[in-house]
Nucleic acid binder design. Structure first.
Lengths: 147, 147
DNA sequence: GCAACTTATATAAATATCTAATATATATCC
DNA sequence: GGATATATATTAGATATTTATATAAGTTGC
């Protein structure tokens, strides 16, 4: 049906729309934990790289420094992160994610994977193949976005 | 390089990871408007279908009925939505998105499309083709998720 | 056709979270 | 070493959210 190397042009609007839809679908995750969006966002960031300075966390989230300080204080109270001084800078604080904090993110990730798996099961082998073939390109897209 | 119909199996974890990364990248949208995540989420839902009952909005967001009522009151005060009685049910309220409310979502969507376009420009034609070939399957995935 | 129940939304008070302003301690730069 | 910059903390006030309760309109069984 299709040529070996598919050079059909990619419609950005279409891609954005599909992506928007998929995001909308997967964002509503029941999850038992009652954690706010900002809280989960900070934990997620730390799950990718820990420890991080408060100032680094502020840079990614669009909230004030004060909000992050208070949020991290609550997260520490709940045992999801742990703050320690930065040996190389006496002013700084290094926020470490705890196993419990990582567990929150991991369990949400597992839950999401299961939901996606169920949907993917409804696709044809050809459709699954098409998505699989696009994964390397999508991965590179994400890399480009991280710079 | 690849067979005509690619039946290589799709690794759900890999897909979920890429998707998670892309979401993380596109979620931090500076946008001038200072609207909370929940606020944008309600507006976005209404941009896809309007009017909607309060109770329908509650079903999608994970907040209490009270929170939605108050949020919609604020949105109405700001001219982003308009509430009208439901002729078929005297108890119900139909929340309509206003042109101004739709404008907020549209401008964010345009902004996102521009950001995605910039990233896509960094891909090779083959990579763009691979993503384009996966769009129909991704669209169907979203459809499956909506049921 | 009405009493009991359910459904849809509103309100009030308590709590949680956020912003703005300011303070404090450590680093850095002449 | 003093001036300035940087990293975080604190405080107070504004905003948003939950919990519990209220109100009003629909539905059901009799």
């Amino acid at each position: 049906m299709e040529p070996k190397t598919n050079l059909s042009e990619l419609n950005v609007s279409d891609f954005a729309m599909v992506f928007e839809e998929l995001t909308r679908i997967f964002i509503r995750m029941p999850s038992i934990e009652k954690l706010s969006f900002t809280t989960l966002s900070v934990l997620h960031t730390l799950s990718l790289r820990s420890p991080m300075r408060l100032s680094e966390l502020i840079a990614t989230k669009q909230v004030t420094q004060s909000a992050i300080t208070q949020l991290v204080t609550r997260l520490e109270r709940d045992g999801l992160v742990e703050c320690r001084p930065d040996p190389s800078d006496g002013r700084a604080v290094l926020v470490h994610i705890t196993p419990q904090g990582a567990g929150v993110i991991d369990s949400r990730r597992s839950e999401r994977i299961m939901r996606i798996a169920k949907l993917i099961a409804g696709l044809s082998p050809e459709e699954r193949g098409a998505i699989a073939s696009a994964l390397p390109a999508l991965t590179r897209l994400a890399q480009l976005g991280n710079t």
